[in-house]
């Protein structure tokens, strides 16, 4: 008898709490996490929220062992695109990859003066450096070049560290390391492709074959993209121009 009036308010509070949780959940689902749009509707429409989700790692792997440079260039192009809009410096932590060449970065449209480099002795060190950089929250872009893949444990740690900060976290892998189960938001495969040719038959703008292999809450796809290093934007090559006969035939 004495417990009856006590239980009733308790039940009421439980019901209230459940209702509140439900509303919270629906509200939370509505707020999209911040993204970095690639500026290319064809790609952005495949990505949840219309761009690369800021926070969780994004894997960029070469399609073939010899395409490592294309994967690196694609990641740095995204980094250049990010830096073009915000002040600050990007961190590139490398292990097992050659250091980028400053003049080449400038050719790609990424200001070498806004790049901080860290040469680590192994993937573990790279992950720790990336974690520290995410915790510091002072860099607008963080890129890791790792030799092996991204293990599940490291991806969890990175995801924890990235909560509350907003740099896009790009990881460039070697082909052998790609495909591990981990918490990466997207997984890209990049391959080299013949470059755009200008009117005089010279190499004009780099092109890469980009395949969105895995995308959480999104759709995969495959595109041929062209990088405009002056405007810092990706675009799809024009079909007609692409189908012109190669200049090779006319050569002596």
């Amino acid at each position: 008898m004495a417990q009856e009036p006590m239980r009733q308010p308790q039940e009421a509070t439980v019901a209230d709490r459940l209702a509140r949780l439900r509303t919270d959940l629906s509200a939370g689902a509505g707020t999209a996490p911040p993204v970095m749009p690639l500026g290319l509707p064809a790609l952005d429409s495949h990505l949840p929220g219309g761009g690369l989700v800021l926070g969780p790692p994004h894997e960029i792997a070469p399609a073939e062992p010899c395409d490592g440079i294309a994967a690196l260039a694609f990641a740095l192009a995204l980094c250049a695109r990010r830096l073009a809009g915000v002040p600050g410096e990007a961190l590139i932590a490398t292990s097992g990859h050659p250091l980028p060449y400053g003049h080449g970065l400038a050719s790609l449209g990424l200001d070498p003066g806004r790049v901080l480099l860290l040469e680590a002795a192994g993937d573990r060190e790279v992950f720790r450096a990336l974690e520290a950089a995410l915790h510091a929250g002072c860099l607008p872009a963080v890129v890791g070049l790792v030799g092996e893949g991204l293990p599940l444990k490291a991806s969890r740690r990175l995801q924890l560290a990235s909560e509350g900060s907003d740099p896009p976290l790009l990881l460039v892998l070697r082909p052998a390391g790609a495909g591990q189960p981990n918490g990466a938001a997207t997984r890209w495969q990049v391959s080299s492709a013949p470059a755009a040719v200008d009117r005089f038959g010279g190499l004009h703008a780099p092109r890469w074959g980009v395949r969105l292999e895995r995308c959480r809450n999104g759709r995969g796809g495959s595109w041929l993209v062209e990088w405009d290093s002056a405007a810092h934007r990706l675009h799809l090559p024009e079909r007609l121009a692409d189908d012109a006969a190669p200049a090779r035939g006319s050569r002596p």
Partner: peptide, 23 residues
């Protein structure tokens, strides 16, 4: 200042220095 803090943390935690490319 925060980048300086990050550089110190990296130097202590990993033992590596942050560098920059210079022409």
């Amino acid at each position: 200042e925060r980048v300086a803090g990050l550089a110190d943390i990296l130097a202590q935690r990993i033992g590596r220095r942050l560098v920059r490319l210079a022409p």
